[in-house]
Simulated assay, not measured.
Amino acid sequence: MSLSHVTAPTQYVEVDGVSYAYRRWGKKCGTPLFLVQHFRGGLDHWDPLMTDGLAEGREVILFNGRGVGASSGTPRRRFEDMADDIAAVIKALDLPVVDLLGFSIGGFQAQEVVLRHPRLVRKLLLLGTGPRSGDTTIDPEMVPVATKPVHDQDDFVFLFFGRSEAAKQAGRDFWQRRHERTVDVDPLSSPEVAEAQWEAYLAYMEPPAEGEPFEHLKAITIPTLVVNGIRDIMIATVNSFYLGQNIPNSQVILYPDAGHGSQFQYPERFLKHAIQFLDE
């Protein structure tokens, strides 16, 4: 029986005494797609419609960083260190090269993987994210919601989706899909994870000590797809433009009436764009 988002078992790979949780399934051909999740997010925070759609043409690997969800260890406090962990896990899984998808703070980590370990990544997908030293403008209404220990459906829809009734319904639909898995569920991340990841974010957004703010992005020369909603209240949409303007071989797609989780609001549309990008 073929595996899916709902049935793929949680597996573990040990690197330097840390047990990293991951799930892996899909068509065993071509380059695997390695996914890195958002703030406090884990293996069960992805959209089954999206991951299973991607897995029809390649292996999909969901990953929890150090101390996140079912992974052991103390949470990292710098995205650069998180990136080194990702590279170590990719190597431990005997993968010579991957396509890398990073969502939100996962996008910060994914950029650092490419910068620090460029030979490991063939193509890069950056969703709802931005560059180091980017624009930190956020919607003030977002802060009290985003800092709650656990989000309910309405909180999640507010933070990740657009403002129209159609967008809110898409958010509720995603919420139902996200909870389809009821066995071997990934534990929620601890408050220590949130604290460490927030510290990493603040450090990453510091202005550069010298030189132009986004000069480092010119070193990302692999094909890159940047996706966001037209109004991201978590990581300002302007950051997607900064990525597109400074990563030489990049393209930017903004979805209408959408926010931080635009790929969850438009899963079918995102699948078409992502698969075309990965396969071309």
Rank of each mutant, 00 (worst) to 15 (best):
2 S>K: 14
9 P>T: 07
15 V>E: 09
19 S>R: 15
19 S>C: 15
22 Y>N: 00
25 W>P: 01
40 R>D: 04
43 L>H: 00
44 D>G: 09
45 H>M: 09
46 W>Y: 02
46 W>N: 01
66 R>W: 02
70 A>D: 06
73 G>W: 04
88 A>H: 04
89 V>C: 04
100 L>S: 10
100 L>P: 05
102 G>T: 01
108 F>M: 00
110 A>D: 00
114 V>W: 02
115 L>I: 02
118 P>W: 12
126 L>M: 04
130 G>R: 05
130 G>H: 04
142 M>I: 09
142 M>K: 06
143 V>T: 14
150 V>A: 13
151 H>W: 15
154 D>Y: 10
155 D>G: 02
161 F>Y: 01
162 G>M: 07
165 E>D: 14
172 R>H: 06
173 D>H: 09
175 W>V: 05
176 Q>A: 11
178 R>S: 14
179 H>A: 10
181 R>A: 03
187 P>N: 06
191 P>C: 00
194 A>I: 02
196 A>Q: 00
203 A>T: 07
203 A>Q: 12
205 M>R: 08
207 P>F: 13
214 F>E: 14
215 E>T: 13
216 H>D: 11
219 A>V: 08
224 T>N: 03
230 I>V: 15
234 M>S: 15
238 V>R: 15
242 Y>Q: 10
242 Y>G: 09
247 I>Q: 08
264 F>E: 15
272 K>G: 11
275 I>V: 15
277 F>W: 06
279 D>C: 10
280 E>V: 13
